[in-house]
Each structure stands twice: as structure tokens, then as C-alpha cells.
Amino acid sequence: MIRARLVLACVLAAGAAAPAAADTPGEGACAAFSVPGRAIEHPFELPGGQRALVRDPYGGLIFRNRLFVSFVVRTVDKAQREQVIDHVEWMLDGDPAPLARNRGGRYALLVPSTRFPAGQHQLTAHVVLRDGQALDEAIDVNATDCQPVTFFADIAVSRGRRAAATLSVGSGGPPMRRVTFTALRGVRAAAPAALRGRAIGTLSFFDGTSVRQAAGLTLRLPRRAAGGSVVVLRRGALRVTLHPGRRRLLDVNGLPDGTTGVRVRLAPGIVAPRRGCPVRADLVATVLGGRGSGAAAVRSGVRC
């Protein structure tokens, strides 16, 4: 079975952290790239010295376009939590009302993301113990209406060297000037001799906040690819460069003004593993924007 996963990454440029304001993507504060953070576990101590934590799977940043958000209080093991903690009540900025009708059960919070207004907030877990004592653990969260940078790598890794690949990056709103695809493991770029002088795929653009797509531009392998990097598309300032044999797979430079989504479809064998299953491939898409947009790196992977 092939499994695809989207792994979250980091904003590379200073000042490009996700904003609090509910701006239109690509305007105001949303002109900077936003990416989800890594999960954070906030430890605290219960009476008697037992250790517990509040798990924030969003790294302090909630995108309000997701359906639900969930936070949970955990201990070293579930049995200990049952013995020590009766239940957890949740408050947003000191008020339990916005988080009413919680679907998370005794220890977790599960509510629609829109319960968190755009902006900076303090989320408090009011932990009620079995013996009647209670304590509060507060964490900081930021909610935004901006949309995150996304990267999806769809590679038919089960076909080994004959795998076809589709690499899609959406900016979430800010325009992109450059996209670089890099393999952390599992796949490499290639320029098969049988495909020299032939089309090896397409480059297309789409709205980076939805699925609308425009017609693609043909990527063509030169007849003479004598080693090293090869340009497979050149149109005005736009250039796509393939790097056979390297972890740095593909560069897309000189993107047209206003580009918010890039999709590269590649013929079998251009970006592929060296063998069939089992394979675990991890890739990173690095996007560079215009002035004020910053840069971001997002990781994705497939395995079989």
C-alpha cells in the first residue's frame, strides 16, 4: 500500500511568521508565507510530583480554514491519567463560553477552528483532579485566516525506476518567484537516454488557495544532455532546470507575476526511486517570494 503524507516545515525568512490578522490572502499581513508549526508539548507538574503535558499539535498556530482543532492533556501513561485526573475544562482568554459543546471528552478539546477568533490568545486547561484539587496550565496560541504553504508529492514509488511524479506547491496567497524541489531520501532525478529530445512532463500554474488549474507548458529533455544540470523549459524569464543524479531535483525560476501555485508533472523515470518497494521518499519544496513574502520550506513524502 502506498501512503502519502504532508509534513510541516518552517518559515525561513525573518518576519514571515503567520500573522494574526484576518486579511485577504496575498494582501496585508497575509502577504507573507505562513506554514504550520511542529507539535509542541507543554509540560507541567501535578500535585504529588506526577508529570503531565498539554499537547498542541499546531505549534502555536491555528489556521481557521481547517474544520476542527484538538488539544489534549496527557500523562506518562493513560492508566496514570485515569487514576489522577478526573477531567479537564478549557478556557479561551479566561472564558469557557467560546469552547462550549466540546466534543473531545474528559481530557481533550475538540471544537471548530472558528471558535478561535483571528489573533493572539491564551488557551487554558483547567485540570480537575480525582481528589478535588485543580490547577491551570495556560499556553499561547495564534489564530489566522491566512492560508498555509502546501506541498504534495505524488510519486508512484511502487513502480521503482519507472515511477511517474507530480509535485504541487501552493503558496496560500503570496506570489512566488522561485520553487526548488529537493530529495532528502528515497528518490533521485534522472535524464534517461531514451527520453532525450522528447517531452518529459509539464509545468502548470494554479490558484494556490484552491484547485483551479491552467494549461501546462511542455518540459523537454535536450537531445544532448552530457551530464550536469539541464534546462528543460525556457520561456522569457521562466526557466525549469533538472539536476540528474543529485538530491536537488528541480528548480523553477522566474515565475510569472502573481503565481501562487505550481504543479510539475514528470514522465516515468525522471524523479523516481532506484528500486521498488519498500521505499520511503521524503522531499522538500522551498519557495521564495517577492519583497515582504519571505521564504518557506515544506516537506512531503510517500512510501510503499
Results as ranks from 00 to 15, higher is better:
residue 262 V to T: 04
residue 273 P to Q: 14
residue 278 P to T: 01
residue 277 C to R: 15
residue 273 P to M: 10
residue 260 T to R: 03
residue 260 T to G: 05
residue 260 T to Y: 04
residue 252 V to S: 10
residue 264 V to D: 06
residue 261 G to T: 03
residue 253 N to Q: 10
residue 278 P to S: 03
residue 251 D to R: 09
residue 262 V to W: 07
residue 250 L to M: 04
residue 270 I to T: 06
residue 255 L to Q: 00
residue 255 L to T: 00
residue 267 A to F: 08
residue 252 V to E: 06
residue 261 G to F: 07
residue 277 C to W: 14
residue 272 A to I: 00
residue 279 V to G: 08
residue 272 A to M: 03
residue 256 P to V: 09
residue 276 G to M: 06
residue 273 P to R: 13
residue 259 T to P: 02
residue 261 G to E: 03
residue 271 V to H: 10
residue 267 A to P: 02
residue 258 G to R: 10
residue 256 P to W: 09
residue 257 D to M: 10
residue 272 A to Y: 01
residue 270 I to V: 10
residue 252 V to R: 09
residue 277 C to A: 15
residue 275 R to I: 02
residue 279 V to P: 12
residue 264 V to F: 10
residue 266 L to P: 03
residue 257 D to E: 15
residue 275 R to N: 13
residue 256 P to D: 12
residue 252 V to A: 13
residue 253 N to C: 04
residue 273 P to F: 12
residue 270 I to R: 11
residue 264 V to R: 03
residue 265 R to L: 12
residue 257 D to L: 13
residue 269 G to T: 03
residue 265 R to A: 15
residue 250 L to E: 00
residue 255 L to M: 04
residue 278 P to V: 00
residue 253 N to R: 12
residue 258 G to P: 02
residue 265 R to Q: 14
residue 265 R to K: 13
residue 280 R to S: 15
residue 277 C to V: 13
residue 257 D to Q: 15
residue 262 V to Q: 03
residue 252 V to Y: 10
residue 270 I to W: 04
residue 250 L to G: 01
residue 262 V to K: 07
residue 261 G to I: 02
residue 265 R to C: 11
residue 263 R to Q: 14
residue 267 A to K: 08
residue 271 V to M: 07
residue 251 D to Q: 06
residue 266 L to E: 04
residue 279 V to H: 13
residue 263 R to P: 00
residue 274 R to M: 13
residue 263 R to E: 13
residue 263 R to C: 02
residue 257 D to A: 15
residue 278 P to K: 00
residue 258 G to K: 09
residue 274 R to D: 15
residue 279 V to W: 11
residue 261 G to K: 03
residue 268 P to N: 11
residue 267 A to M: 08
residue 279 V to D: 12
residue 269 G to D: 08
residue 261 G to W: 06
residue 263 R to S: 08
residue 268 P to C: 09
residue 276 G to P: 04
residue 256 P to A: 09
residue 270 I to Q: 10
residue 271 V to K: 10
residue 269 G to F: 00
residue 265 R to H: 14
residue 274 R to L: 14
residue 265 R to V: 10
residue 267 A to G: 05
residue 272 A to F: 02
residue 275 R to K: 15
residue 250 L to N: 00
residue 270 I to H: 07
residue 271 V to C: 05
residue 252 V to N: 07
residue 271 V to S: 05
